[in-house]
Structures are given as C-alpha cells and as structure tokens.
Simulated assay, not measured.
Amino acid sequence: MSVPAIVDSHCHLDFEAFEEERDEVIARARRAGVCRMVTISTRISTFPRIRAIAEQYDDVYCSVGIHPHQAGEETPVTVEELVELAAHPKVVGIGESGFDYYYDSSPRDAQRSSFTTHIRAAQETGLPLIVHARDADEDTAALLEEEYARKPYTGVLHCFSSGRELAMRALDIGFYVSLSGIITFKNAEDIRATVRDVPTDRLLVETDAPYLAPVPKRGKRNEPAYVAYTHAALAELRGVSEAEMASDTTRNFFRLFSKVPPPADLDLGNAA
C-alpha cells in the first residue's frame, strides 16, 4: 500500500521492538511512501540513543523530552538543558510531554512541572511542542493557554484521542492535531466526529509505532510504513483523494516542523 510523500510525524524507533530489524523497518516505510519520520524522545536518559538513530538515517529526525509516564523517575531537566540539546540539527521538536491521568504513572505535580518546562523550552527554541494528553483534557488545555498567553509557541496534540473541547482550544492557539491508527478503530466514532471538524491545514498523521497499529494491521506491532493505512482512512473520512490528503498533511508537517528539510524533489506548493 503506497501513497506519495507522506510523513510519520511520531514514532519510537529506539524501542526494543525495532532493535533487531530497524534497517528493514525504515526500508519498508520508504517503500510505502514515507519520506520523513520523527522518532520521539520519552526519556532524557535514553536521548543519546534516539539522537544516534536520527543521525544514522537521512530521513529520520527526532525530538527531545520526557514522557509524562517518566516525569517522576527521570532526573528533572531544565529549560536550559532542553534548549541546549535541541540545538542539534536533527532535533526538530520538544517532547513528548503532557499529562496522563489514565495511568498516572508519575505524580501529577511532577507531570505539571515537567510539562511546564517543556512548554518553556518550546517557547525559547521556536520548535513545536509534542503533547501527550490522556484523561486530562481540562488541565492540558488550561496550561497550554496559560503559557501561550505568557509567550506564544506552537505544537501538536499527538495521537489525538481526547474530547472535542481540547482539540478546539488547542486549535485556537495555533496547534495542530495528529491522527494515529485509532481513527480506524470501530469504537472511535467520537474521535472521527471531531476530526471531521479540524481544519485541513492543521492535520498530521502518525503511527506512534510500535503501538496502535491501524486496521487492517491491528493487533500486530505497528511500524512507520503503516501510516499509509491511517492516511487512507483519514482521506476517506474527509471525503478527499489520498493524493490530496497526502499533499495537505505533508505540507502541514513541513510547516510545523520547519527545521526538517523536505526532500529536494518534493513540491510543497504554498508551504509557508
């Protein structure tokens, strides 16, 4: 399955699930039309490995940050430290960070402190903030808005599975919404209903691999190539061709992740 020039804006290529065949996984993504992949940081302690993967492959980039699950166990990072790490040419985003009240793997005060630090690093660097939000819509929206009033910044609600209100409040401050394989699941009609109302110029696609493989791969290990299935589902949901959807989401990606250079042969049209 292939569509032209799509992007996996959020995956985890450093995870053990890919250790034995990372070259093959990336090759399959390329064959599926994936021109760029962003491998996402969940721990500062493993960031050197994440960065090394991005350095190894021309079409792979990375973020820097601490997932809310690890906010209570990782050594707290400062804004200045994140800014310094983000200066690397392959680092193109801050996060993922946010609130996760579903698992509550870290104390909520630790999650808030970490999230605020990541927001302020995004403000300082101009790089997009990659937001994880689960069962924490009101706190997420409120902190994003509070910090935006202090100093504007941009970002993305990754793997969107939240309520309509969070999406709309994030869109109001210029954020993007990234869709994963969840939109292909039978029980995700509420999410699909919200996605229908997201402006076309704010949509991204991702895998969150190795998690959340889309139908028809559900139940298998996810990988960047499978973003093509999510992309096809999004095009159908929006009532447009896959080619048009590819043009839109890829243009959106390079607008938001402006530090990532597009392929030389990719025509982005009005990408500004």
Rank of each mutant, 00 (worst) to 15 (best):
D8K: 01
S9H: 04
D23A: 13
V25F: 07
V25H: 01
I26S: 04
R28E: 05
R31L: 14
G33Y: 10
M37A: 11
M37F: 02
T39Q: 00
S41Y: 01
S45M: 00
F47N: 00
R51T: 08
R51Q: 10
Q56E: 15
Y57S: 07
V60W: 09
V60C: 02
Y61G: 06
S63Y: 04
S63L: 11
P68V: 08
P68M: 08
T78L: 02
T78M: 03
V79C: 04
E81F: 10
V83H: 03
L85G: 06
A86M: 13
A87L: 05
A87G: 07
H88N: 00
K90C: 04
K90D: 07
K90Y: 00
V91R: 03
G95L: 09
F99D: 02
F99Y: 08
D100Y: 01
Y103K: 05
Y103N: 06
D104M: 12
S106N: 06
P107K: 06
R112N: 03
T117M: 01
T117C: 13
I119N: 03
A122R: 00
Q123E: 02
Q123C: 00
E124L: 06
L127P: 11
L127E: 10
L127I: 07
P128K: 01
L129C: 01
V131H: 14
H132Q: 10
D135A: 15
A136I: 07
D137K: 09
T140H: 01
T140D: 04
A141Y: 12
A142W: 13
A142S: 15
E145P: 12
E146C: 13
R150A: 14
Y153T: 01
T154Q: 08
V156W: 06
V156G: 11
G163H: 05
G163S: 10
G163K: 07
I173W: 10
G174H: 06
Y176H: 10
V177A: 04
S180Q: 02
G181P: 07
T184W: 08
N187E: 05
A193S: 10
T194D: 02
R196P: 08
V198R: 05
P199M: 12
R202F: 11
R202E: 05
E206S: 09
E206Q: 09
Y211P: 02
P216K: 05
R218L: 01
R218I: 09
G219D: 11
G219V: 13
H231V: 12
E236P: 14
R238G: 13
R238Y: 13
R238F: 10
G239M: 13
A243F: 12
T250F: 09
R251T: 11
R251P: 03
N252Y: 06
F254R: 02
R255G: 06
L256D: 02
F257Y: 15
S258W: 15
V260R: 05
P263I: 10
L268R: 09
G269A: 13
N270A: 15
A272G: 15
